[in-house]
Structures are given as C-alpha cells and as structure tokens.
C-alpha cells in the first residue's frame, strides 16, 4: 500500500514551512548584516551587493571585540566551576546512601525553578558586599544559580545508572571519595559532562538580566547586553546593519556548536526535563 501522492506532497509542504520559518529570520539577519547605507532600507529577499563593512565597524571600532572576550571568559569559567562542583556533589547524591538524600536533591532541583528576578535584589547586595560589582566574577558567581542545579541533576541521574561493581574494589581498598571520583568515574563521565557543559556554556553565553544589572561599564559587558544597548543618536538612526553584524557574530559559534553536538544537546535537554 503506497501513500497517495497528495498526501506525500502535503507532508513535504509542512516540512518546507517548518524549515522556512526556522531559518528565515537568521537568514534575514545575515542578509541585513551585509547591507549598508541606503540598501539597508530597501526590503530585499536576496543579497544584493554584499559588503562586510558592518563587520569591520563592529570588530575594529569600539569595544565589541573586548565584549566577546568577556563572554568567552564568563561562559568558560562558569562551565569549569559548575562541572567541578557538580561532579563531586553528584557522586555523593547518586552513589552513597544517607538520610535526607531525596530531600537534598529536591532542594537543589527547586533552585532551578527560582525566577532570577526573585534573587536579584539580594544578590545585588551580596555582590556589592564581596566587591564584585562591575566585575566579570560577579557573573561567574551568580550564574551558578542556574547551571549548578541542572548539572547536578543530570550528572546524578547519569551516575546512578552505572553498575555498583565499578567502584566496589576501590571502596574495599579504602580509597577516598575524591580518589574514586577522579580515578573511577571521571573517565566514564565524559559524555554526560560534554552535554551538561555545552548547555551551561550556551546558557551563560545568552544570559541577560544579571549581566545587565551587575555590570555597569561598556568594556566589562557581555555580548547580549552589548547588543541590546547598541543605539543611534536618535530612534531614526539605529544602526541596524551593525546590530545584525554583531548578532551574527555571537550567534554563529552557537549555531555551529548546536549542529555539531546536536544529539548530545537533545539528550541533555530531555534528560533535564523528562527524567523527572
């Protein structure tokens, strides 16, 4: 029994609409980023006389290059810290029986439900107390609130599904927890760590509210805030070409990451949600 032609055509029409709506806005951003002057204000569907002047402006004038480095620094350090803290915690939560374990995991998980705005005023005070205002460390520190619960949760589920035998010998030899984590689990954990690390990186790269609040000078800002604050002298002089060039620059690495690690990211996202 073969599917009738109209049904197959209908199916591919739906597929085409799905792909088109997903890709068009980014395509149009790229198109705009390659236009300058008057060309910007004519609606085009296909590139006409592409020009890299917007990219040159963004990367050579002003502090955008510096801001990219800020974002790279924050996201990388966030990934390292949250993985280090989460792997040890996940070991205790998954491999050692002790009272209050379930409640503890529930508490950690509930932190991921916190609206960022609910901790904003308290966190602002803490950050000023530690003298971190307008420092990138303020972001590294505050981003733990969303990367840690998720990372702990996914790594705990991952470790729980490993057989008891792999650490039995080490326990009997009297190896310490840290040794067991480093020697036995770390080499087996790479798949889960790559997934959670990637998601933490993406989250930290995209974060806006804390970055907007805890940093105050242009040269300290991360890219999302930088892009949000690009403005012209008046509403009619907003440099759309520059904004789109900046947008493409910060998005391309992410799109590349997502495409390369597609499977890992999908499994990480669903592990974070569905396994509940």
């Amino acid at each position: 029994m073969k599917t009738p032609l109209w049904k197959r055509l209908g199916f591919y029409a739906v597929v085409a609409v799905i792909v088109l709506q997903a890709l068009f806005p980014f395509y149009y951003a790229i198109l705009t980023s390659l236009e300058d002057g008057q060309a910007l204000f004519d609606v085009n569907y296909l590139p006409a006389a592409p020009d890299f002047v917007n990219y040159r402006t963004m990367l050579t004038q002003g502090v955008f290059g510096r801001q990219i480095l800020n974002s790279v620094f924050v996201a990388t350090v966030v990934v390292i810290f949250s993985l280090a803290l989460a792997v040890t915690a996940a070991y205790a939560l998954s491999r050692i029986q002790f009272r209050g374990r379930g409640l503890l995991l529930l508490t950690v998980l509930s932190v991921s439900m916190f609206p960022q705005i609910a901790v904003l005023s308290g966190l602002f005070e803490v950050i000023r107390f530690f003298g971190l205002f307008n420092s990138l460390w303020a972001l590294v520190f505050s981003y733990m609130i969303f990367t840690l619960p998720f990372t702990v949760w996914v790594l705990t589920t991952f470790m729980r599904n490993m057989p008891v035998e792999i650490e039995e010998a080490a326990i009997m030899d009297g190896a310490s927890s840290l040794t067991i984590i480093r020697r036995v689990f770390l080499p087996l954990m790479w798949p889960a760590m790559v997934t959670t690390g990637l998601l933490a990186f993406i989250h930290a790269w995209n974060e806006f509210l804390f970055a907007l609040t805890f940093l105050s000078t242009d040269s300290q800002r991360t890219v999302p805030v930088a892009i949000a604050l690009i403005s012209g002298r008046s509403e009619f002089e907003i440099p759309w070409g520059n904004i789109m060039a900046a947008s493409v620059i910060v998005t391309l690495p992410l799109v590349a990451l997502v495409l390369v690690f597609q499977r890992k990211i999908v499994s990480g996202l669903t592990a974070g949600a569905v396994k509940g």
């Binding site: 799905i18 997903a22 806006f208 892009i227 947008s247 910060v250 799109v255 495409l259 999908v266």
Partner: peptide
Amino acid sequence: VRAAVLIPWAIPTIVSAKMWAW
C-alpha cells in the same frame, strides 16, 4: 530538518528579539 528546527533555540534571546524587531 531536525538541525534546522534547533536553530531558533540556539539563537540568544536578545539576538532573536533584535532580529524580529528589525
């Protein structure tokens, strides 16, 4: 197609907002 569908998710929220604003 699955890769294409993931792209809006990968784009930072601020960038999406600016793209659509334009």
